[in-house]
């Protein structure tokens, strides 16, 4: 049985939010995922970090949703980062070349540091 997606939006700094993802990312997750993105984008957010530690399952429609979210973010000049991806899904990000646009980090600390530390 599919696990319905649940998301939690956590502001980390005034301009950075984390979206905690729990469950499956499939076509059925579109509304929940985009609502979470909209919530995270409020108040001048410049970086959104996706926490995939609770991801159970993702299919190709789910990858399409992430592309759409990324494009929305790019149009608002936001950075999109991710952590908590299993080795399998890191390979899928590489295969689909999503990793060229979404920074992938081992854990939350590394992702937040990447956002808050000047390049």
């Amino acid at each position: 049985m599919p696990n319905q997606l649940t998301t939690t939006v956590r502001p980390i700094t005034p301009h950075t939010c984390i979206i905690d993802i729990q469950g499956d990312i499939t076509a059925q997750a579109e509304t929940d995922l985009m609502n979470a993105y909209t919530q995270a984008s409020q108040n001048g957010t410049t970086a959104i970090i996706l926490n995939f530690e609770g991801l159970d399952y993702m299919n190709s429609s789910g990858i399409g949703l992430l592309v759409t979210m990324l494009i929305r973010g790019q149009r608002q000049k936001q950075r999109l980062l991710a952590f908590g991806l299993s080795e399998h899904y890191q390979q899928i990000f590489a295969l689909t070349r999503l990793n060229e646009a979404i920074g992938i980090y081992d854990d939350e600390t590394a992702a937040v540091t990447a956002v808050t530390t000047p390049a």
């Binding site: 926490n51 899904y89 899928i92 939350e108």
Partner: peptide
């Protein structure tokens, strides 16, 4: 702060994806 290590389990649909290729 959440310091849980990444979940490295293989999902049920792993065989549905193409293998990584350059």
């Amino acid at each position: 702060m959440n310091d849980k290590p990444p979940d490295t389990h293989t999902p049920d649909n792993a065989a549905s994806w193409a293998k990584p290729v350059d």
